[in-house]
Design a protein around this nucleic acid. Structure first.
Lengths: 203, 203
DNA sequence: GTAATAGTTGACTATATAGTCAAGAAACGG
DNA sequence: CCGTTTCTTGACTATATAGTCAACTATTAC
């Protein structure tokens, strides 16, 4: 049934890259089409607007991010190790991406959200929902750690919020300063917030 | 001599407002002129480009921010009180601004920096320098608190960086979620990072 | 008052960007 | 191989935006 195509996927990939490079408003539909190797008519065949494409990209991104975080925050992993592995991964990935592209990418959700939250309500909702996922991972890890007597925390949700702010702040700083090394101390900082001594190194 | 004018100042004010509302690329020169009540010719009489205006606005903003923070972080104030007052002020101001405009503004430097750091190197440098000011205030307060035996910290600069990440992350989250109440727990979070119990309330 | 200076304007050009569409090309079911 | 569907294209329009400029206006020094 009908001609087949991966143009939709190419557009989604392209917009993800371009948002990190140029932001939402700095990314034109022409630029998206160019990057995706597609004519503008094809763009409008799949999406009604840049906002629509952004929503599709956010949804796909959220699903794949969940998959990746489900692995890191697997209940089979010791709870504190989950947090440590996550933090180390943030550092490693940002560093590697910077080496590849010349720029520390930062968190796409946070960067995009900060830019457009006052204007595009629909995007804002999607971004907020996706950002909220992190709190669930962090809360659960902290709760499990607390249950295992590995950490002494009165309000795990509050600690999760605190750690989330810390991590996102650090990642965004790394982007702005274009210096991934800022994230090297992230594991130690997070453990510090939990009242723990930093641990040498995890998987 | 010659004709007098406050158009330059009006343009700087306008661009500051608009960057918070629409971001850097979302703010057109036409919109800036409209907000400032000025024709485009006048814009180009004072500034060569949007980037130039942004630099001027950043410089003015940095000076006034310094003035304001010098007062909050005055060495005449007990060191931990400086941090507490600052955090409470962040919450209060973001809340009030949100009540006025309908949107939590966030930190102009951080929001702008996250958007344009990959593109406008000149702006990025200015923003990084201005953001660096915060670390000086925080470090000095922590060092003074440490000297007064009010806190036990091995590396005050590292703690300052941690607190800075935490605060900026929280402010940006508040912006994205458009919920200033996120910042209510900021003083307690910061004191928690310093290994202290939260204090009731400061000036 | 007048000459010099600084600021202002509206009308202009050129380009960039969003968005449309009829016609054609590829896949597939029968 | 034919009809249907889906995708693709290039050429198009309309609008938004950046940037220019000669003429005009207000202020000040003298």
């Amino acid at each position: 049934m009908g001609r087949t195509s991966d143009a939709r996927e190419r557009l989604i990939t392209a917009v993800g890259e371009l948002f990190l490079e140029s932001g939402y408003h700095g990314t034109t539909i022409d630029a998206i089409c160019l990057r995706a190797g597609v004519r503008k008519g094809t763009f409008y065949h799949f999406f009604a607007s840049k906002e629509d494409l952004a929503v599709a990209a956010l949804e796909l991104d959220r699903a794949s991010r969940r998959e990746s975080l489900d692995a890191v925050f697997s209940p089979t992993r010791p709870p504190l190790s989950r947090l440590q592995v996550y933090c180390e991964r943030v550092y490693t990935r940002q560093r590697e991406a910077a080496a590849r592209s010349g720029h520390v990418p930062g968190c796409p959700l946070f960067t995009l959200g900060a830019e457009i939250c006052t204007q595009e309500a629909r995007l804002r909702e999607h971004i907020n929902a996706a950002l909220g996922d992190y709190l669930a991972y962090f809360s659960s890890a902290i709760r499990d750690a607390s249950a295992a007597q590995k950490v002494d925390v009165t309000d795990p949700d509050a600690k999760a919020r605190c750690i989330f702010s810390l991590i996102q702040g650090a990642i965004t700083q790394a982007r702005i300063a274009n210096d991934a090394e800022i994230l090297r101390e992230l594991p130690a900082q997070v453990f510090g917030v939990l009242g723990l001594k930093p641990v040498p190194h995890a998987a």
